[in-house]
Amino acid sequence: MSHTIKNKKQLLTRVRRIKGQAEAIEKAIEQAADCSAILQQIAAIRGAVNGLMTEVLEGHIREHLGTDDISPQQRHEDLEQVLTVLRSYLK
């Protein structure tokens, strides 16, 4: 079972909050809101996305790399997958 299914409700709550924040930015831009307010909303979304990424990544590492019941080859493949995602995320 995927760890995202175990925390599905919690993760969906985070995603929906991010969606609401993005919609608020769209509305603010449409209404020509003050730049500082828009920048603050962008910073809030970035924090929310970082929190979501951290939660999913931590679960992935614990479930896929932290167990003793996988082969060294599978562990290596999972590690490479995580590193690829991290490199992409941190660009």
Rank of each mutant, 00 (worst) to 15 (best):
M1S: 14
M1L: 13
S2M: 12
S2G: 08
S2T: 13
H3V: 02
H3L: 10
I5S: 09
I5M: 06
K8C: 06
K8I: 08
K8M: 09
K8T: 02
K9M: 12
L11K: 01
L12C: 06
L12Q: 14
T13W: 12
T13A: 13
R14G: 01
R14W: 04
V15S: 04
V15P: 04
R16W: 06
R16K: 15
I18W: 02
K19F: 08
G20P: 00
G20H: 02
G20Y: 01
G20F: 03
G20V: 00
Q21R: 02
A22F: 11
A22E: 05
E23W: 01
A24T: 04
A24C: 05
A24P: 00
I25V: 13
E26I: 07
K27V: 03
K27R: 10
A28Q: 07
A28D: 01
I29D: 01
E30Y: 06
E30W: 06
E30G: 06
E30H: 10
Q31R: 10
Q31M: 06
A33Y: 01
D34Y: 08
D34M: 04
S36I: 09
S36G: 05
A37N: 08
A37S: 12
A37C: 02
I38V: 15
I38N: 01
I38Y: 02
L39I: 10
Q40N: 12
I42L: 12
A43R: 11
A43E: 11
A43Q: 15
A43W: 04
A44D: 08
A44T: 12
I45Y: 02
I45Q: 07
A48I: 04
V49W: 00
V49R: 01
V49N: 03
N50H: 12
N50C: 05
N50Q: 15
G51Y: 03
L52W: 01
L52R: 01
L52K: 03
L52D: 00
L52F: 11
M53K: 13
M53H: 14
T54Y: 11
T54M: 12
T54H: 12
T54D: 11
E55T: 08
E55G: 01
L57R: 06
L57F: 07
L57N: 04
L57D: 01
H60V: 03
H60T: 02
H60Q: 04
E63R: 03
E63M: 05
H64I: 00
G66T: 05
D68I: 08
D68P: 05
D68Y: 11
D69I: 06
D69L: 10
I70H: 11
I70M: 13
S71P: 03
P72K: 10
P72I: 07
Q73I: 11
Q74R: 14
R75N: 07
R75W: 13
H76R: 15
E77V: 09
D78Y: 13
E80M: 15
Q81P: 00
L83E: 11
L83D: 04
T84E: 15
T84R: 15
V85E: 05
L86S: 06
L86V: 11
R87S: 10
S88P: 00
S88A: 14
S88Q: 13
Y89W: 11
L90Q: 12
K91Q: 13
K91H: 14
